Simulated scan of single mutants.
Amino acid sequence: MLEKDIENLIASHPDEFFPNSGFTLIGQQVKLGKCYADILFQDKHNRKIIVEVKRGILSRDAAGQVIEYYGLLKMERPDDIIELVLCANIIPPERKTFLERIGIECKELGINLINQIAQKVNYQFINAPKQTEIISSNGGLPASERAWIFQANPQRYDIINALADDEIGPYMHWLVNQHKKEIVKGDAGIIWLSGKEAGIYAITEIVTDPQVMEEPEAEKKYWADEDDKKGKKLRVKMKIVKNLLNRPIFKESIIQTNGLQMMSILRNPRGTNFLVTPEEWNIIKDLIK
């Protein structure tokens, strides 16, 4: 899904996201000076509500952006009461605490919630090229019986935006911290997001053995910590063969699936790389199909 998808859903169906607020849409991409605010509402108390939408992890600079919108709108409407709302798929708790202390409401909108509302209101997502569900030349899953989970911590890496970034293309590079001698070229990879929205977000084919390599600049930008961007580290290169960003297989569904309850990532979720047994991989392939 694009940020535009989330914006469209909020603008068209505000009661689904902000129940009992009485939001009336004033406009989308509202021009304020040289800037454009994503959404402008008026609530039942006649206050103006600026809503800024961010896909993935809420970035540090989002607050400055929405505060600037506040100033620009206040200059145009000095007598209006103006409220600010920041929406994102994932909002780090320390960021939310700070922003709400300075009067900016934070609304975490998980992909699961957005999918549920989109289905309820019959909204069709606008797919970017990178977000098409299958991007492999043959449209199939890796033939290997060996599969590995590569886990993304949303506090450290914004995999949601990385999976939707056309600049990255179909290839991604991933750290190998465990099973260094067992992971090999040709194995299948499963990209797993941890946290509240935990689950499977993409299927890959591993195209190199683990080797010390630099991460491409296009991928580096999604690390939250500058130290994680530095230096050559042991990685594999993977080709994304099925992008599930619009329809992840969530952890809750996996736990309820016979044969998957004892997956290593469920029993001991700390780490980067996890073995998937051939039996578990066959069940996951059936779930995807």
Rank of each mutant, 00 (worst) to 15 (best):
Y222D: 05
Y157P: 03
I200P: 06
F150N: 03
R146G: 00
Y222L: 10
Y157R: 13
T204W: 04
A198F: 07
Y171Q: 09
E215M: 15
I168T: 07
W223Q: 03
E133L: 14
K221T: 11
H179L: 01
T208H: 05
E145P: 00
W223A: 06
K130A: 14
A164V: 03
T208N: 02
P154F: 06
Q131M: 14
L175P: 00
E217K: 14
K185L: 09
I206E: 03
Y201I: 00
E219I: 09
A164F: 05
E145K: 12
N161W: 08
T132M: 11
G169I: 08
K221E: 12
N161Q: 14
T208S: 15
P170N: 10
A152P: 02
G169C: 05
D209G: 10
E167F: 08
N177W: 02
V212I: 15
K130F: 07
G140T: 14
G140F: 07
E167T: 12
I206G: 01
P216S: 04
K130G: 00
I159K: 04
P142R: 11
T204M: 09
N153D: 15
N153T: 03
H173P: 00
E167G: 00
E145S: 13
K180S: 08
N161P: 07
D165F: 12
Q178D: 10
W174P: 02
H179M: 00
I168W: 03
E197G: 00
E214F: 11
N161D: 13
P142D: 09
E197K: 00
W148G: 07
G169N: 08
E215D: 01
G169R: 04
D165W: 05
K196G: 11
Q151W: 00
E215W: 00
F150Y: 13
A147C: 06
P142S: 08
I135C: 03
Q211W: 06
V212G: 04
A152Y: 14
S136T: 10
A143W: 02
I135V: 15
E214T: 13
W223F: 15
K220A: 11
E133C: 11
Q211T: 14
W223K: 01
V176H: 11
A152L: 00
N177P: 01
L175H: 12
A188K: 11
Y157M: 06
G140Y: 07
A162F: 03
P154Q: 10
K196F: 01
V176I: 15
I168Q: 01
V207I: 15
T208E: 06
D158C: 09
W223D: 01
A147F: 10
K185D: 07
E205P: 02
S194N: 10
S194M: 00
W148F: 13
I149P: 04
A164S: 15
G139S: 07
A162K: 07
I200F: 05
T204P: 10
W148N: 11
Y222E: 04
P142A: 03
A198Q: 07
E215F: 01
L141D: 03
I206L: 09
A162D: 06
K220I: 06
E219Q: 15
V184R: 15
